[in-house]
C-alpha cells in the first residue's frame, strides 16, 4: 500500500490531551472528535488539515491518556498516517488496533519539513520525500502487528479467531 500526502509538523511529547482535549470526550462520535483534532497543540489545525494529509512528529507522540479517541480523531480528520521518532506505548497499540497506519522513523522525523510531500510504502517501510528527493527507512512492523493490519484491525482479527475456535 502506498500512502502519499502533504505533511504537518509537530514537536516532541505531543500528549493525547493535545490531540483530543478531554472537554470533548463526552462523545465518541468520530466526526465530532475530528472537529477538534490536535486543537490544544495548534488551535487552527482542525481548520487547516485536509483529507489525505500526514502528521510528522518528534519523539513520544501520543503520550498520556489511553483514550482511543486520539487515533480515532486523527483518522476521522482524514489524516492518512503518522510518522514520528517514537510513539507512546498505548497510542502505538491503539493505532494498530483501529487501523491507523503509523511509522517509527527517527530519520524521517528529523528531515521532513512542514508542507513536504511524502510517499510511504506501508509494506516495505520506505518513506520517500518527494519535495526534497530523499529516502528514509521506518522501523519494521513486527509480524503480529502486520497480521493485525492485514485482518483490518483487532476487532476483525478477534472475530475470526473466535469463529475458527
Amino acid at each position: 500500500m502506498l500512502i502519499r500526502g502533504r505533511t504537518w509538523r509537530f514537536g516532541s511529547d505531543i500528549d493525547t490531551d493535545a490531540i483530543i482535549p478531554a472537554r470533548y470526550l463526552n462523545t465518541s462520535d468520530p466526526v465530532e472528535l475530528a472537529k477538534h483534532v490536535m486543537e490544544d497543540a495548534d488551535p487552527e489545525f482542525p481548520g487547516k488539515v485536509k483529507s489525505g494529509d500526514i502528521i510528522v512528529a518528534d519523539k513520544n507522540f501520543g503520550c498520556g491518556s489511553s483514550r482511543e479517541h486520539a487515533p480515532i480523531a486523527i483518522k476521522a480528520a482524514g489524516i492518512q498516517a503518522v510518522v514520528a521518532k517514537s510513539f507512546a506505548r498505548i497510542f502505538y497499540r491503539n493505532a494498530f488496533n483501529i487501523g491507523l497506519p503509523i511509522f517509527e522513523s527517527p530519520e524521517a522525523s528529523e528531515k521532513i519539513q512542514e508542507g513536504d510531500e511524502i510517499e510511504i510504502d506501508a509494506d516495505s517501510g520506505l518513506i520517500r520525500n518527494l519535495t526534497r528527493n530523499e529516502e528514509y527507512r521506518a522501523r519494521p512492523i513486527p509480524p503480529f502487528m502486520q497480521e493485525l493490519i492485514k485482518a483490518g484491525g483487532l476487532v476483525e482479527w478477534t472475530r475470526r479467531k473466535i469463529e475458527t475456535a
Partner: peptide, 8 residues
C-alpha cells in the same frame, strides 16, 4: 490499553 483491546 485502549478500548478496542478491552473489547477483544
Amino acid at each position: 490499553v485502549g478500548s478496542t483491546d478491552v473489547a477483544a
